[in-house]
Design a protein around this nucleic acid. Structure first.
Lengths: 173, 173
DNA sequence: TATTGTTATACTCTATAACTATA
DNA sequence: TATAGTTATAGAGTATAACAATA
């Protein structure tokens, strides 16, 4: 069965009139208890990820790059001559969803699709000079502001240990 | 300026015919280099978070609970007599988005909205007996399967250190 | 027949404005 | 006037099916 009507009514009555101070409950404006939530790794993982992405966006705001776009540019620089399927697959982006993303980067002249001469079905992705320049500036912002802030919070050793464990989870879990 | 047409053509010609083996490029079917991406904390954070949530869903699949739903039930159990705004706010869920989520939980008889007698605007959220039972089973599955697997991968000490760092980022970053 | 890029589409998350009923 | 819950809506992000061009 569900909670009894009388029990529900008791619960409702036990509540306090929120923050206004003219109440009688014991939990007057008190912060909630996370309880076992604070032991759930996935919960902190998600909250931390949101914070880190937020900060990334702030730090690299002058260049108008999202984490996903930055990762694409990084990958293009490190892996010239690759096609859409290869780049998208490496980043865990589905090919259909990669199309609009590339349209955005290409319309800003950060990269170009070049039809491969070997296989005319595939588009080789090429960083433009502007793309290379924006990427270089982005790297500096990320290193000087974003990663530096994480380093300040955790310390270099902890930051490295954290990165190693996250990479392990991403790889082996 | 952008990449020159000739440079782009060179790039396209330099590519290999993907995996089929009848190509001449050096990167024949080679895995891509992540490069500086593997040093970007946010990148591993995101990939790890996706893996952990995937595993959570698998482990708790018999109960049909998402991580977000599980976190709501945990919070209701630990904080009786709270209203929607308080629960949603603690979890970082916007009040409008919390409505449909509660509709789902309430339609499955896992919790109920009870109009507060102190402030008739607010709905006190109450775990039903069924909600309590499902939560208890979910906790067991999470502990025995999900968190146990993470423990096996990282070891208890590392897992604790990881959780502490993620919580610190979520709190202070 | 299989693969690359693409379109269309749908479903989830997230975000904002505005309404209602209460205070 | 302000707050709690709600509706409507819009935008990301993600997922699948299917098509044209090419292999």
């Amino acid at each position: 069965m569900t909670v009894s009507k009388t029990a529900a009514a008791d619960q409702a009555k036990a509540s306090r009139p929120t923050r206004k101070g003219h109440g009688d409950g014991a939990t007057e404006g008190t912060a909630l208890q996370l309880g076992e939530l604070s032991e759930l790794l996935g919960y902190s993982l998600k909250r931390a990820q949101l914070k880190v992405f937020e900060d990334f966006l702030r730090c690299v705001a002058p260049l108008q790059l999202t984490p996903a776009q930055f990762s694409v540019l990084l990958l293009l620089e490190k892996n010239p001559g690759r096609n859409q399927t290869e780049i998208a697959g490496t980043l865990g982006i589905l090919r259909p969803n990669f199309v609009a993303m590339l349209d955005g980067l290409e319309s800003r002249d950060l990269c170009t699709r070049v039809r491969s001469t070997n296989d005319r079905r595939s588009h080789i992705l090429v960083l433009t000079d502007k793309g290379r320049a924006v990427l270089a500036r982005a790297k500096k912002l990320v290193a000087a502001k974003h990663e530096a802030r994480l380093n300040a919070l955790l310390g270099p050793a902890n930051r490295a240990a954290l990165l190693a464990m996250l990479a392990k989870i991403a790889r082996e879990f």
